[in-house]
Design a protein around this nucleic acid. Structure first.
Length: 410
RNA sequence: GGUGAGAUAGUCAAGUGGCCAACGACGGCAGACUGUAAAUCUGCUCCCUAUGGGUUCGCAGGUUCGACUCCUGCUCUCACCA
């Protein structure tokens, strides 16, 4: 009997480790993680997993959820998440990956961002196993003396080893001294929270390791394990997913958009998304991949499945299926979408003006060019006359494949 | 503080008195081919009912028939020196 339980534990730990390792870029001190899992399964003791979020932008996208999903995995295997909001550090601005000093946020902006942040995060995380913490709570109290003590743990030389700093330094891009403090403060968070594990993107490596170093320096008798996730590429497949680059899928995107965006990624990128975003097992994914390779599975089908999964996660099953049906209707059968924005105007209107009026063209100049190129359709019929006047009636206007509007001319 | 270099469309980057709404590259949009994939080919990419007009090349003035190009001042960025 006793042996049987032992055996079961072992299986569980193995399974957990496998899930935890999935998609990871690098793990430092994975022995520690294994030990934590072992104590959890043997004694039921939970452990803490810290992840920091910089409330600089109010919207989460799938790039962020890579991290969140990993946190959720830990929650499944005994982890308690410390969802750290960098309310204090946001005032400095994380220098990571930035070629210039970052803009500092106001208190108001931060508070606003935090609210929308957490509601979105709980679409992935288990709320009952998550503790939201704000680092101004303890960093505020640190004071000048504490700050100096903290700073004594780091040499300038070591700081400059950091890739982004050294690049900026050698290219004479300014580095604010306060930016040097950022990794220290982030590391101090780990001291204060006594985190067992911290996870973050690969670009956070330096900061994450700082946590380990400081935990040692402050003698809290443990050093956090560090798990790094790769940075998710955006829709273009090259640059990292980010709002400012416009290549993102937002957690709060409408189902139709979300579905369509996933389907627009390249086949190569699809596997990346599968690995980092899907909850399908790695075996299943491997099967899909070989199916595509030997031609027994159509890549579009496989992509659709991914799109359904993701859309259903942030909305629900029904919405996802609707999105798919809608997509097929518009693109495969080239029919008109169900929901189109409606506009109405009084009196006859020139086609180019009408397109601008409906917000599907930015200017009449652009509208004319598109008409010339045959990109504009009225009621599914290509428009060839750029002087066309719309007289009373209802029309479905279309530009390219994606932009639709309904206009009513009175 | 001193000296020098620079600021051109979404980004990079040509243009150094008229041929400039401004070469080129990237990005973006559209068309063909497709699976709203990739690759490829083609066109477009400041605004205006347009074979024309208007507003643009850091900002403000000036010289000139004419300025992105020359002059003056200002703002900002970078480099070297201190």
């Amino acid at each position: 009997m006793h042996i049987k339980i032992k055996y079961k534990e072992k299986i569980m730990i193995e399974e957990a480790l496998k899930e935890i390792h999935r998609g990871c870029a690098e793990i430092i001190d994975s022995e520690r993680i294994e030990k934590l899992l072992k104590t959890y399964y043997e004694e039921g003791t939970t452990y803490t997993v810290k992840a920091g979020f910089d409330p600089t932008a109010p919207d989460l996208h799938l790039g962020h959820t890579v991290l969140l999903q990993k946190l959720a995995t830990f929650q499944k295997y005994g982890g308690r998440v410390q969802f750290l909001i960098g309310s204090f550090t946001a005032m400095i601005g994380d220098p990571t990956g930035k070629s210039a000093t970052r803009k500092v946020l106001t208190q108001e902006e931060i508070v606003q961002n935090i609210n929308s942040y957490t509601t979105q995060a709980f679409k992935v995380l288990d709320e009952s196993k998550t503790q939201i913490v704000y680092n101004d709570e303890w960093l505020e109290k640190l004071g000048a003396a504490g700050m100096l003590q903290l700073a004594s743990n780091l040499t300038v030389a070591r700081m400059l080893e950091r890739d982004d700093f050294s690049k900026r330094y050698s290219s004479n891009t300014p580095i604010a001294v306060s930016e040097f403090m950022y990794p220290l403060l982030q590391g101090y968070d780990s001291v204060h929270l006594r985190s067992d594990i911290e996870i973050g993107g690969t670009d956070q490596k330096f900061n994450l390791l700082m946590g380990r170093q400081l935990q040692k320096a402050y003698e809290i008798k443990k050093q956090q394990a560090v798990l790094m996730m790769p940075i998710l590429e955006g829709l273009d497949g090259v640059q990292k997913m980010s709002k400012s680059l416009g290549n993102y899928i937002g957690v709060s995107d409408e189902p139709n958009d979300m579905f369509g965006k996933v389907l627009s990624i390249s086949d190569d990128l699809m596997w990346r998304y599968y690995e980092l975003l899907s909850t399908k097992s790695l075996e299943t994914i491997a099967t899909l991949k070989s199916g595509v390779e030997d031609g027994s599975l159509h890549p579009k089908k496989v992509k659709e499945e991914l799109a359904l999964e993701i859309t259903a996660r942030y909305h629900d099953e029904a919405a996802a299926n609707n999105a798919k049906a809608e997509f097929d209707k518009v693109h495969s059968k080239s029919q008109i979408p169900t929901d189109i924005a409606e506009f109405s105007v009084d009196g006859d209107i020139w086609i180019a003006k009408a397109l601008v009026e409906c917000n599907i063209e930015p200017s009449t100049s652009q509208a004319r060019r598109d008409i010339k190129q045959g990109a504009v359709k009225i009621n599914q019929e290509k428009v060839s006359d750029e002087q066309l006047q719309l007289t009373a009636g209802e029309y479905i206007l279309q530009v390219g494949k994606r932009k639709f509007a309904k206009i009513k001319v009175n």
